[in-house]
Amino acid sequence: MNKHFENPFIDTIYNGIVRENPTFVMVIGMCPVLAVTTTASNAIGMGLSTTAVLILSNMIIAALRHIIPDGVRMPAYIVIVATFVTVCDFLMEAYTPELYQSLGVYIPLIVVNCIILGRAEAYANKNTVYLSCADGIGMGIGFTIALLIISSVREILGAGEWFGNPIYTASDFFAPIEILIKSPGAFLVLAVLIAAKNKWKWVSDKKMEEDAKKAIRES
């Protein structure tokens, strides 16, 4: 899990997807995670639109990092991100109506997604445009994968469907657990998945530690 890559671009992407996954490791951007993971197609829509905004806002903020004064950086970031998202919203509504139909409801939510501001503050204002782009890609994909996993669990167990396609019918043996697609289900699934991830990390860290000890003993 704590693997590192030589190429800084790839390493930054891997960092966003695994080492510092925004949802499962940093636990930021929880509003969309809890709100839109009712179906897998919603999750993909939210994940991809956030990724697009994240990459571009990271790059713009990295490009302006020497111009924006420290004292007013927060309002400056908010203005930049909100402008950017709204322009995207206008353009999508005008030129890609089909896409807008399915993603339109998420676009305004992206402005207040704290992953965007979080990455601007924690990464983009200290790094080059090139690496900030990689960070946007990694964090965006990491976020999308997390949303997809959570929504798949909720949709399959809670509604018996996946991407809107029925995969089993309710029987005496197993009926969909309806609470999972309601709001409390989001908390339950998220908690179980984070617990599982921590267990996996604990096991893999322990194995690494033992390998290291073994290597010392053998030498």
Partner: peptide
């Protein structure tokens, strides 16, 4: 200095928004 830069960022953003709206409103 800080206020001025923030002001400029806001003005540029506002202009961009207005421009995007002007272009897309008739189509939408």
């Amino acid at each position: 200095h800080d206020t001025l830069i923030l002001f400029v960022i806001c003005i540029v953003s506002g202009l961009l928004l207005g421009l995007a709206y002007e272009i897309t409103y008739p189509i939408t």
